[in-house]
Design a protein around this nucleic acid. Structure first.
Length: 427
RNA sequence: GGAGAGAUGGCCGAGUGGUCGAAGGUACUCCCCUGCUAAGGGAGCGUAGGGUUUAUAGCCUUACCGAGGGUUCGAAUCCCUCUCUCUCCGCCA
C-alpha cells in the first residue's frame, strides 16, 4: 500500500512512476473521491463533536439533577443526520480503500524502465555452462531412472505435483538442509518454523490479497475464518511483525524458513507443463529481513548475495537480472531475479527472486520500530528465495549429469549425503 | 469434543451506562534534592486519522479498552456473533 499522503500531495508524479510499470492510475477519479472524502469526513467529525459535547452536557446536568429536555430536544435530529453522514463516509471510504489496496508499489529510481521481460537488465553472470561431450538429457528423463515419478503423483493428487523416491528424495531434503545451515551459520539468519495455513489478514499484509486470490489455494471452514495455503514463506514470516513496534536494538531482523509453497498458477495453464519447474506444491527456503528504511537498499544487495552463495556452492552457473518496471511483482520497489543455467532448455531460468518492498508491506501491516526521536516509524521489508528447492534439484540434475545418466553431487552437498559423491541409477 | 473463567495503555491492575483516552502501581524520559551504583520530591509519557499550517512543530477535532455488529442523547461498561487465552474433563502425534 502506498502512503496516501504521497498520493494527495504528489498525485501526478506518483501516477507517472506507476505508469512506468504499466499501471494506469485514474488520477481524476482519485482526486474526485478524495475531495468528496474530505468534505464528508469533516462534516461527520463535526457532527460527532457536537454529539459528544451534548452528551457530556446531559451527563453533567443529570448529575446535578437538572432538567435535560431542552438539550435533548436540540439534538433530536442529530442522530439521523450523523447516521447519514457516517454512511456516506463509509460508502466513500470503501472504494477509496479498495483503490488504494489495488495500486502496486512505485518502482525505485534505479529500476530499468521496460515494457516486458525482454527489457530486464543482466547485472552479472557467474560460472560457465559446462560443455558436454555426450547427448544431454533433461531432468525429467534423468529423473525417470533416479526416482522422479510424475505418474504416481498425478494419480494421488493431479497434474503439477511430483513424487520423489529414494536418494532423489534424500537429495531434495539435503538441499534444503544445506541452504538452512548456510543461511543460519554463515549469513546470520534465525531459522523459523511457521504455519503453512494463514488467515486473510496475513495475506493482505504481504499483498497477495485482495488482488491475487485466484492464485491461492484456500481451506473453507464452516464457522471460522477461511484459511489460505501459503504461496511463499514470505507471508507467515513477514507477518510475524504485523501490528508490532519492534525494539530498534533488535534490528535488522533476519529470518530464514524452509516451507512448502502452494500456488494454483491460475494464469499459467500452457506453460512449463513438463517436469517439476512449475508445480502446485514446491519447497522453498526463504530469506526475510526487516530493516530500518535507510538500510533496505543495501540489504537487497546483501540478501541477494546470500542467495547467490548457494548457487556458487552448488557449482551452478547463473546470472543476476535486474527486473524492469513492467516485470516486477505487485509489492516490489526493486527486484533481482537469479536465473540458473538449465542445459536441456539451453537457457537461464528463474530460481530466486529477491525484492525490496520498502514500506509497501509494512504499511499494510503496521510493522514499525521506534526511531531515534522516539516516534514509531515503518520498517522496510526485503526478501528473497535462497533458493527454490525443487528448481535447484532440477538444476543439479541437469548441470551435474554424467554420460551414464548418473549425477555428480557437488562437494558442498556431500556431507549431507553421508559422503555420497554420485546419485547412481541403482537407487 | 464437554464445562467454566477471562481479554483494559510497555508491563501489572482499577473501572458494570454520563465530566473516561481511561484511577493506581511499575517501567521509561527530563528536572530537583541527596557525600556515591540506593532513597526522596516534581513533571512528562498510547496509536491511527481528519482539519489548519511551510511543517513529520503547535492548535482544534475524530476513532480506538480482543474483532465485528447492535441498543442509547451517551458504551470499556448492556445485547449478539466471532477470535484468542486460561482451568478442569475427554481424546490424541
Amino acid at each position: 500500500m502506498l502512503d496516501i499522503q504521497l498520493l494527495r500531495n504528489d498525485l501526478d508524479n506518483v501516477a507517472a512512476r506507476l505508469a512506468s510499470r504499466g499501471f494506469a492510475l485514474d488520477t481524476v477519479e482519485f482526486a474526485r473521491l478524495e475531495a468528496e472524502r474530505k468534505k464528508i469526513q469533516t462534516l461527520t467529525q463535526e457532527l460527532q463533536a457536537k454529539r459528544n459535547a451534548s452528551s457530556k452536557q446531559i451527563g453533567i446536568a443529570k448529575s446535578k439533577g437538572e432538567d435535560v429536555s431542552t438539550i435533548m430536544a436540540e439534538i433530536a435530529n442529530l442522530g439521523d443526520e450523523l447516521k447519514a453522514a457516517e454512511d456516506a463516509l463509509s460508502a466513500l471510504q470503501t472504494p477509496l480503500n479498495a483503490l488504494l489496496m489495488s495500486i502496486p508499489n512505485t518502482p525505485h529510481a534505479t529500476v530499468p524502465v521496460g515494457k516486458s521481460e525482454e527489457d530486464n537488465v543482466e547485472v552479472s553472470r557467474v560460472g560457465t555452462p559446462r560443455s558436454f561431450d555426450f547427448p544431454i538429457k533433461d531432468h525429467v528423463e534423468l529423473g525417470e531412472k533416479l526416482g522422479l515419478d510424475f505418474e504416481t503423483a498425478t494419480k494421488i493428487a493431479g497434474a503439477r505435483f511430483s513424487l520423489l523416491r529414494g536418494n532423489l528424495a534424500r537429495l531434495h531434503r539435503a538441499l534444503a538442509q544445506f541452504m538452512l545451515d548456510t543461511h543460519t551459520l554463515d549469513h546470520g539468519y534465525t531459522e523459523v518454523y511457521v504455519p503453512y495455513l494463514v488467515n486473510a489478514e496475513s495475506m493482505r499484509g504481504t499483498g497477495q490479497l485482495p488482488k491475487f486470490e485466484e492464485d491461492l489455494f484456500h481451506v473453507p471452514r464452516t464457522d471460522a475464518e477461511k484459511l489460505y495455503l501459503i504461496p511463499t514463506a514470505e507471508v507467515p514470516v513477514t507477518n510475524m511483525v504485523r501490528g508490532e513496534i519492534v525494539d530498534s536494538a533488535t534490528l535488522p531482523l533476519k529470518f530464514v524458513a524452509h516451507t512448502p509453497c502452494f500456488r494454483s498458477e491460475a494464469g499459467a495453464y500452457g506453460r512449463d507443463t513438463r517436469g517439476m519447474i512449475r508445480q502446485h506444491q514446491f519447497d522453498k527456503v526463504e530469506l526475510v529481513q526487516l530493516v530500518k528504511p535507510e538500510h533496505s537498499e543495501a540489504t537487497l544487495e546483501s540478501l541477494t548475495a546470500h542467495a547467490e552463495a548457494i548457487l556458487q556452492a552448488l557449482e551452478l552457473p547463473y546470472r543476476k537480472m535486474a527486473l524492469c518496471t513492467k516485470d516486477m511483482g505487485f509489492s516490489a520497489a526493486k527486484t533481482y531475479d537469479l536465473e540458473v543455467w538449465l542445459p536441456a532448455q539451453n537457457t537461464y531460468r528463474e530460481i530466486s527472486s529477491c525484492s525490496n518492498f520498502e514500506a509497501f508491506q509494512t504499511r499494510r501491516m503496521q510493522a514499525r520500530f521506534r526511531n531515534d526521536s522516539g516516534k514509531p516509524e515503518l520498517l522496510h521489508s526485503v526478501n528473497g528465495s535462497g533458493l527454490a528447492v525443487g528448481r535447484t534439484l532440477v538444476a543439479i540434475l541437469e548441470n551435474h549429469q554424467q554420460a551414464d545418466g548418473s549425477i555428480h553431487i557437488p562437494a558442498a552437498l556431500q556431507p549431507y549425503m553421508r559422503g555420497m559423491t554420485h546419485l547412481s541409477l541403482t537407487t
